[in-house]
Design a protein around this nucleic acid. Structure first.
Lengths: 343, 343
DNA sequence: CCTGAGGTTGCAAACGGTTGCGCTAAGCCG
DNA sequence: CGGCTTAGCGCAACCGTTTGCAACCTCAGG
């Protein structure tokens, strides 16, 4: 029960493969009668062109590569969801790669994607990646590429990101408005563009409110397991200790909340907590968690749309652009205003 | 800067493509000297065989299809994580498809996967799927196939699942032991094997404790948005109302907890809550949620391992088997024993 | 010196499809 | 009625690789 080929049809109808091919593509060179015959027969046999043969011949493989650090992460799985939706509608398939935050695997995955002849790449940098020459090479080859979320500003490619600066600014401002002054920032590895933007937003808000920046209050996580606990301990040991935690990832948020629970710290009485997260259950946590959410699915959709545009009218390159989508601050119990407002 | 082909090497070295091909595959027919030349040159040019040409020619495409209802779901993203890990180690790629719980898309995705000439399929049924003839056809074609999580028992294929019966039995028993007698079961669409197994586990536990089964207490969700609220209302309106909710999915768990919060129902005082979920934050919810977790990543890994075995020694088919992995009951605050135990 | 074997290498077909071009027959015009 | 156009179709090359088989050379044995 092997798949039907063009040859089978040609043979059965006593035609040449070229005629069948043209008939199926509705070429003007083929008589309506012949077309009808071929189409009907192909329909009956449920003929599907072999995409592999197509990609061998032509250039297009109708496949996109998505390279992300981790699938099992709310943000990325939501983004992939958006990517897949767009890709499916436009007739593309999605091949997924995980870098597990490793630079080496990122390079290897890019290689693999290229040799699979994908039509384009969607990539979110691993936290280890500081050298982006592998991507430069891609761009020089003319491979369509769109970066999302964790991008590299210096690369001349289309990038889709959330407004990390704005999100962090809004979050920090909110904490300041609720009376906190010692705001700790638990964040992700410093190489990442998003880390820097969030840090910048955090600093900008501090400055706006005349609160001096204290680098002791900024701690970098590593995506390792159980990393939040020690960081929280270090921060709580400061004097004066922080009165708020602003964290930059799902894992840090949950880890931090868990650590605070375990140490019997009252949230938000003793410290407030506010986090970047795409978790669906922030409102059900104890206490309900104030969050900055990124439009993960929209980011994925937009990135996929841009990429497909790039692929389909490669000539008319509109030039690289960075698209920034707004984040949403949702205030909940974990950052409730302090009873006595200092301001 | 087009990718290097065997022809380029052949031309540069004044050899035929066949010689180069054989040299690269280290064939005994080629002289050591020629091999060395070819290998070195290929190395220098960073030659990578075109996988598309390989798949066209031979049989193997070194790609696996994964078809799941939803990527943005803790269970599935964790499972895919496991799949990808194994696949990567064995040199396979993973192409992801989402059915969005639609039977039509499931069929279309299977078609697409086949025409992409993947070497094998990993599939978790959509909730709409009751007819599995599209999978029967696959099996008849000899396409390696492994079902996981949402399986179809009647199919003669390898299946990897969690012990849903056991998990539900343990969960229900626990609720009974803590003094609950009117245990509602909010579950997913009834076609699914896992739904039936969980229901069976639930009933078995009831029977064990001599509590009559009341079908009014069982409600089926549809994966729609905000479906939990109405179901909770209906159940709370029963007389006597339930004293526990046992839910069968992440979404139902969170939806249910949210609905109970909103209605001011005390958990676990008024009703207990216990859920199947792979959420990472169950212990941080308010109240901390008692859960049955499935070993999602292990299920993915095991399924991928089985599939690759199937692919690589297609001849020695060990016959279909069902592998069942244990679930874990974690008791937390949301199912705290009632103050006055009836038993 | 001829023959045959063994060791190397190249030719060509094949995978499934697309496409430039050539061929045939019919129709049209002068 | 002859030549030209044109519709409709087939031949063959091509994408990159593998592989059966033929071809060639060298050398040893008879």
């Amino acid at each position: 029960m092997d798949p039907v080929t063009i040859k089978d049809i040609a043979h059965a109808l006593n035609l040449s493969t070229s005629t069948v091919s043209r008939a199926l593509r509705d070429s003007y060179e083929i008589s309506p009668e012949t077309k009808r015959l071929v189409m009907e027969y192909a329909e009956r046999l449920n003929y599907r062109p072999n995409p592999i043969a197509l990609s061998l011949k032509g250039s297009s493989s109708k496949a996109l590569a998505v390279i992300v650090p981790q699938i099992a992460n709310n943000f990325f799985s939501q983004a992939i969801n958006g990517i897949e939706a767009i890709a499916y509608n436009r007739g593309y398939h999605v091949i997924i790669f995980q870098t597990h935050e490793s630079y080496e695997r990122e390079v290897a995955n890019v290689q693999q994607a290229v040799s699979r002849r994908v039509d384009g790449l969607l990539l979110s940098l691993s936290s280890e990646t500081s050298d982006v020459s592998h991507l430069k090479a891609l761009i020089d080859q003319g491979m369509p590429l769109v970066l999302f979320d964790r991008v590299a500003g210096e690369l001349p490619v289309t990038q889709v990101v959330a407004d990390n600066f704005g999100g962090a600014y809004a979050a920090t401002s909110h904490l300041l408005q609720t009376g906190r002054r010692r705001i700790a920032h638990l964040t992700i590895p410093p190489y990442l563009s998003i880390t820097q933007e969030r840090l910048a937003g955090y600093r900008a808000a501090l400055e706006q409110y005349g609160v001096p920046f204290d680098e002791n209050l900024v701690r970098y996580g590593t995506f390792g397991p159980d990393e939040a606990g020690p960081l929280v301990d270090e921060l709580l040991a400061l004097s004066p200790p922080p009165d708020a935690f602003f964290t930059a990832s799902d894992r840090l948020a949950l880890g931090c909340l868990g650590a605070l629970h375990k140490r019997g710290v009252d949230v938000p009485g003793q410290v407030a907590l506010l986090s970047f997260t795409n978790s669906q259950s922030a409102h059900l946590l104890n206490p309900p968690l104030s969050t900055v959410t990124q439009p993960a699915q929209e980011i994925g959709q937009l990135a996929a749309e841009r990429l497909i545009e790039l692929i389909e009218r490669k000539h008319k390159s509109t030039g690289p652009s960075t698209m920034k989508l707004p984040t949403t601050l949702v205030v909940r119990e974990s950052s409730r205003p302090l009873p006595k407002l200092v301001m």
